[in-house]
């Protein structure tokens, strides 16, 4: 089913994929902890329940922040190739994507700022600092991929990986894949880099004053973000996918490894996390630059 209907329903499909990841993820974590865990569609039920509750707001900036979070997250979905459909593409895909990924957190941050709660402010400041930390290795990897492929367009990156499993960037540029995976943990806000949420320290950080449909919107944003992060990894390093089933399985394998790592680690403090991100992945990415790109980077 192609064409206009696909374009219109793409965010919904992405939302459902994200919800399924969240559900399966919670269940996997529960099994690791030797208990049963909630039903697989629990996050979906959570979202519906949240959207049906009463809610309070602190002003028009609070409302606007939540709209921006939802719209920004859905906008990212249009830029990430979905299975064999490259929806919106141009010469500067990857660079524009880096900036569009920042719209939704900015919206959430503006909304929480008007909530005037210091817990929320601390949470957002930690989230921004963590973003400063992981953006350094992330940019190194993105620049490396762009220079290696010679183009910043997703069409070129995907076509450079066609022709068999050995052509996938995860095998041709393994150092970059490791660094990107490392960064992805912080980007999705999972242990050990979930200082941003930190329920027992800062009362769930930015989400402290959200209730009802506002919190529902944030959950939708989180689900879309899970989808976008996993899909980006698949498109950058695993050669995209030719069909929907293949796409889902590849994304799920990435998510599975992520969940298994995150289920067994504790939370790191912000300063340590930022220091770590500025040293270890940067060194790895730098070695990757020298090995894969040669001396022409200077």
């Amino acid at each position: 089913m192609n064409g206009v209907w696909f374009l219109v329903f793409l965010p919904f499909i992405a939302f459902l994929i994200g919800i399924s990841f969240m559900g399966i993820g919670t269940r996997i974590v529960a099994r690791i902890q030797r208990r049963y865990g909630p039903p697989l569609i629990q996050p979906f039920i959570d979202v519906i329940k949240l959207l049906s509750k009463d809610s309070i707001s602190y002003g028009w900036v609070f409302d606007m922040g939540v709209w921006m979070a939802l719209a920004g997250a859905a906008l990212v979905v249009y830029f990430v190739p979905f299975a064999d459909n490259v929806v919106l593409s141009g010469k500067a895909d990857v660079v524009v994507l880096m900036y569009i990924l920042a719209i939704a957190p900015l919206g959430m941050a503006l909304g929480t700022a008007q909530a005037k709660n210091p817990y929320a402010s601390i949470g957002i400041s930690r989230a921004l600092m963590l973003m400063l930390g992981y953006d350094l290795p992330l940019v190194m990897v993105i620049l490396g991929i762009i220079t290696y492929t010679g183009s910043a367009s997703f069409v070129d990156i995907l076509s450079a990986q066609q022709g068999g499993i050995a052509n996938w960037y995860i095998f041709r540029l393994p150092l970059f894949a490791i660094v990107y995976f490392w960064v992805m943990i912080a980007e999705m806000g999972k242990h050990p880099f979930d200082v941003l949420i930190a329920p027992s320290e800062i009362a769930s950080g930015p989400m402290v004053e959200f209730s009802g449909k506002y919190l529902g919107y944030l959950f939708i944003y989180m689900a879309l973000h899970y989808y976008a992060a996993c899909a980006l990894f698949v498109n950058f390093f695993m050669g995209g996918a030719a069909s929907f089933i293949e796409f889902y399985l590849k994304m799920f394998s990435v998510f599975f490894v992520l969940i298994c790592i995150s289920a067994v680690m504790a939370r790191t403090t912000t300063q340590r996390a930022v220091y770590m991100y500025w040293t270890k992945p940067v060194v790895l990415a730098f070695i990757g630059w020298l090995v894969y790109l040669g001396w022409r980077i200077f």
Binding site: S52, S55, I56, S57, Y58, M68, L70, A71, K213
Partner: peptide, 18 residues
């Protein structure tokens, strides 16, 4: 997308300002 978010926000149960 913002328009969609706003319309959905208006259709869901009412909020109040505190």
């Amino acid at each position: 997308l913002i328009l969609f978010a706003v319309v959905l926000w208006l259709l869901l149960p009412r909020h109040r300002y505190v």
